[in-house]
Amino acid sequence: MGNNEMTNGMSDARLRQLYALGSANRAGAAATVEHASPEDILALVQRSLPEAQRLETLDHVMACAECRREFDLLRAVEAAGGERTTQVRPLPSAWRRTVPYALAASLALVVGTEAWRRSDSARLGEEQVMRGDGSGVTVVSPGGEVAAGEPLTFAWRPVAGARRYDLEVLNADGNVVFSAETRDTVVTGARPETILPGAEYRWWVRAVLDDGAQPRSEPRSFRVVAR
């Protein structure tokens, strides 16, 4: 809501700060509170409650630190379930021994350093990290449809205070099929053999900041289409 100032000049940021303080003090002082049941919180994140009940449950959950923690946990599990396709094909045998979450380095090798190269200024330790003013990461391209056979270039906007950026490309099963670390805001090169025509992919970028924070972009999809 930006800096809308109606009858009262208190900014959104200030309201948030005071609301957090007021809620924390209230939570500590309350002796007994009627909590939302875990089942209701799950129904809330699964959007299976009728609207009136959904609003009522959400109102309580947002006002109650304990319920909110459970809400965040269930929401993350639910969203992780929703981010994958409904059925996941068995992994190619070459991947079965590897833990996808830790795939970053090994996959970059599988993909092959010949096919993929970071732009010249991207090698860690050589150049200044590209920095900007934004606090999150905004990805620029690719998105939508990408022609098969053409080089792929991943680009995003610089983030202030970034030490490096981690790029990941995931297939429809949620497996990382390509990853790179860079100080640049571009990763470019020929298409790796793990990014196939006819398939849809999602990619995102995480910025690792000097202060340890790791803001991440929203995932962006692209589909490789044969021309």
Binding site: V88, T98, V99, P100, Y101, D173
Partner: peptide, 9 residues
């Protein structure tokens, strides 16, 4: 592998 993948997600 499936569990680790899900955990990562």
């Amino acid at each position: 592998s499936t569990v680790a993948n899900f955990a990562g997600m």
